[in-house]
């Protein structure tokens, strides 16, 4: 059972967290024409690195969506970063 630091709450165990996506995915502007490949890349392609990864997670209890930097082999967590400003 791993422990992740919620940028707001602090350390909680992994059962309180939900993996959302790899970081850096930007939704294409769908009001203009985009090709199938561009859309499929956004929807499905994963970097899936073995090693240091940057991911977007949700802390299910306080609903914080944040950036988590961790290692996908050792499971060591290096940092969690809030995505929120002005709060």
């Amino acid at each position: 059972m791993q422990q992740f630091p919620c940028p707001f709450c602090g350390e909680r165990d992994e059962r309180e967290f939900h993996f959302l996506a790899e970081a850096g995915k930007e939704r294409p502007n769908t009001t203009v024409s985009i090709d199938d490949e561009t859309w499929a890349r956004y929807l499905y392609k994963q970097r899936n690195e073995k090693g240091e990864v940057q991911e977007i997670w949700m802390h299910l209890t306080c609903r914080e969506v944040f950036l988590l930097k961790r290692h996908s082999v050792t499971m060591a967590v290096s940092e969690s970063v809030s995505l929120r400003q002005g709060c």
Binding site: M1, E14, R15, H18, N48, K50, S72, V73, M75
Partner: peptide, 13 residues
């Protein structure tokens, strides 16, 4: 498991 992983280890949850 719930956490994406390359670690060939089990996890209690």
């Amino acid at each position: 498991d719930r956490v994406p992983s390359y670690g060939q280890r089990g996890n209690l949850p």
